[in-house]
Design a protein around this nucleic acid. Structure first.
Lengths: 236, 236
DNA sequence: ATTATAAATTGGTCTGACAATATTATATCT
DNA sequence: AGATATAATATTGTCAGACCAATTTATAAT
């Protein structure tokens, strides 16, 4: 039997977490000051500070210089941070991310249709309209395309799903694929968006599925090209 | 223009991360000691310690008392930690998690079949065999069922997908659904596992999809019951 | 060469001090 | 009385030094 000795800092951090949960504190609420914590937890300020530091790095608390300690807003932001470093250190295969994205988007349309959800068509049309304008004006289109797919996740009505999808989307964007798209392919992308909206309104799952698959195909084509080019390059 | 003042601790943490990336250090590698870091970063030990504490809480480094600082092994473990607290604080709807799980599992079988991957049938059979034994012996079966689904994720050959799936699986297990299963339903579950394996070997996507859906159905039935019971209870 | 012991290294905690920033109270003016 | 500028206070940030506890390394004994 292994008895793991836990440091005071870990104990303090645990008790702070418990305190937040027990008092049902909401993000943004003011929390106890370091001084108060040293008194209540009966440990040195060093320990309290290290505990707070470790909690703040995972988004559980926010510490403002001179301003005090507050309950943190978003744990998912720190997850993005973690993945950012993970990517910088280990790298991730583009194909893996593309596959995951496809799983998520196919899953989203299935959830929407199977759970018989009414999508916010006006919202979709507005986003895609701006996408269209940007294409015609030759401006940056990436933002609106991204918004469209984000809206897709939101329409599932599943907040947890949406949060995870966003984390992965963020991870995906770390891998800069400069998929230089011609005006024609952008127009095609815009029209596919329209078709996807239509399929969702008609609750046509099969059609929505194949439309999503087709819509994501350029990414996979690109990946295959990159992989082939690399294979040629590494030939000995 | 807002100039955000960054504290010494944040700067130190950033430089430590950079150091790990630039020197291409691998998990488990020994890193610089606190003393060395105070020298190189030219800050007090307090700052170094707080920086290390914040990095260790997101799994980037591991600090062993008397032993030194090492490069961390798993960032995904800390993600689980974050989600654990997130759940304790905000709670998450069971239905949302169940839906996500279904998305992932359906996605997994699609990836396996569409990418034309050869699954490790022997491994599946061994896990499911132990599952069968446990059912017959009346022992705890949960572990083997979990292993089966874990193996499903692994067979995608997509490490990133697998990691995310595991994180979500862990999150799912936080919500203890005591789905008390009868011996008959367990046997049914075992047989469904067998069918899923067969469908994967035959690369029959449609069949694999419907088998997964059917296999997860008991969870959704359970959720519907809980939801109805709660609706009755809150009737005024 | 192996083992036991001692020394050195390294992280954990405490105390006290001062600086930097934010908040609050006070005084001043209109 | 209300708005504004100023002073006092509270709070976090950083530093230095000390001692303890655990691990690692060097040394001595067998």
């Amino acid at each position: 039997m292994v008895i793991k000795k836990t440091s005071l800092v870990e104990i303090a951090a645990e008790r702070i977490k418990q305190n937040i949960i027990e008092n049902n504190l909401r993000p943004g609420d003011r929390f106890l000051s370091e001084k108060e914590l040293t008194r209540q937890l009966e440990v040195s300020r060093t320990v309290v500070r290290e505990a707070l530091r470790s909690l703040s790095s995972i988004g559980i608390v926010e510490v403002r210089k001179g301003g005090g300690v507050y309950v943190g807003h978003s744990s998912f932001d720190s997850i993005k941070n973690i993945l950012e470093h993970h990517h910088a250190l280990h790298g991730v295969k583009l194909r893996e991310l593309a596959d995951i994205r496809k799983v998520i988007e196919l899953g989203a349309v299935r959830l929407i249709i199977e759970n018989d959800l009414q999508i916010d068509r006006a919202c979709f049309e507005e986003i895609n309209g701006r996408y269209h304008e940007a294409i015609l004006a030759g401006k940056d289109t990436k933002k609106y395309d991204q918004q469209f797919h984000q809206q897709l996740m939101k329409e599932t009505g599943n907040d947890t799903f949406y949060n995870f999808a966003e984390v992965i989307q963020e991870y995906f964007s770390l891998v800069k694929i400069d998929l230089v798209q011609s005006r024609d392919s952008l127009i095609k992308s815009y029209e596919e968006h329209e078709d996807i909206i239509a399929a969702l309104v008609q609750k046509d799952l099969v059609r929505a599925h194949s439309l999503i698959a087709e819509h994501l195909e350029p990414v996979f084509t690109f990946i295959r090209q990159v992989e082939e080019a690399r294979d040629d390059g590494t030939h000995q």
